[in-house]
């Protein structure tokens, strides 16, 4: 397995290089000019030249790309054009906040979805199943924004159950995160339950399930001992691959609840043409995505001993 992991890590080098080249070209040749964005209508040729020099944008393109590669290798993505803050500091601050917003409801939501999906699989094609599927499809048809706006209005403003918005570092943050967590769980419940239910039902028609039933195993034993275990592979794929995106936060949630995570940071960077932030974030997420893909493969072998990594 170690040889497999090393080989996969080596494969990642050309992938990351390719991603770096793509990101660099996109921002350099097709993106807006950050100097023009910063100077706005007060740009004079000498002010433009001065700022280009300060930001290193007057260097030849190949040197700028080499600098970008150096940043990737050293994990030092320089400073934000707009605030002068170190990107590594910004990332660390923002990532923790984003994770505190998205990770708890993510884990929670999956657990609840698996639970409901198992129940629905057990009661498949019954009234409960039909009703649940109807509610799930209805809940999936409503926009994320509607959940945020309406729940913020009703639960926080009208019923005064939660603070309307805000964030404080440390444990104090929990006060402000309750409502966003609740919304994330509710929004994710529909799609997750639907997928997991389908996965469980697919498994229940497999030969080994029929054999287990023929041997007299009860329905609960079949579901919890056999179906759940075998359905874990696609569940893990769905779940682990989504983890890097948790760091990105939930853009809308961060904006509406004023939570200073990576999502809010990226929106600000887009508005201000802050390319070091955008390039850095995109690269970090690309690298993380590659790693988590590898992690998914490794986890397969633990969940299902039949999967051999070679």
């Amino acid at each position: 397995m170690i040889a497999y992991i090393i080989r996969r890590l080596l494969y990642m080098i050309p992938i990351i290089l390719g991603v770096a080249l793509l990101i660099f070209c996109l921002f350099t040749f097709f993106g807006d000019d950050p100097v023009r964005v910063a100077l706005g209508q007060h740009a004079s040729p000498d002010a433009i030249a001065n700022l280009q020099h300060l930001w290193g944008l007057d260097k030849p393109i190949y040197l700028q790309f080499i600098d970008f590669l150096k940043q990737i290798v050293t994990f030092d993505y320089g400073v934000s054009f707009s605030t002068g803050q170190k990107l590594s500091d910004m990332f660390m601050e923002g990532a923790f906040v984003s994770l505190s917003l998205t990770a708890p409801p993510f884990v929670f939501g999956i657990f609840i979805s698996i639970s409901i999906a198992l129940i629905l699989a057990y009661y498949r094609d019954s009234f409960i199943d039909h009703m649940a599927r109807f509610i799930i499809i209805m809940s999936m048809s409503i926009s994320y924004l509607v959940y945020i706006i309406s729940l913020q209005y009703v639960l926080a403003y009208e019923l005064d159950l939660f603070p309307i918005m805000g964030y404080e570092p440390g444990l104090e943050s929990i006060t402000y995160l309750f409502l966003p967590w609740l919304i994330i769980v509710i929004v994710a419940l529909g799609p997750n339950t639907r997928i997991f239910r389908t996965l469980f039902l697919e498994e229940t028609s497999a030969d080994y399930v029929r054999t287990a039933r023929a041997k007299g195993a009860g329905e609960a034993r079949v579901l919890f001992k056999h179906v759940l275990k075998n359905a874990l592979i696609p569940i893990i794929t769905n779940t682990v691959v989504a983890i890097p995106f948790l760091i990105l936060g939930a853009f809308l949630m961060e904006r509406f609840f004023s939570i200073p995570g990576i999502g809010a940071m990226i929106i600000t960077a887009i508005n201000e043409g802050d390319f070091p932030v955008l390039k850095g974030m995109t690269m970090i997420i690309a690298i993380m995505y590659s790693f988590f893909n590898l992690l998914t493969d490794v986890l397969y072998s633990f969940v299902d001993p039949r999967v051999k990594l070679s």
């Binding site: 198992l118 939660f162 603070p163 919890f224």
Partner: peptide, 30 residues
């Protein structure tokens, strides 16, 4: 009905509203 299933599903059914309540309880306000 399978006793094991009833036991587990009851636990789960209890867990769902409980967790929703916990994540949304008003004692979070200060």
């Amino acid at each position: 009905m399978d006793k094991l299933f009833v036991k587990k599903s009851r636990l789960m059914l209890l867990f769902i509203p409980l967790s929703l309540f916990l994540s949304g309880c008003p004692w979070g306000k200060k």
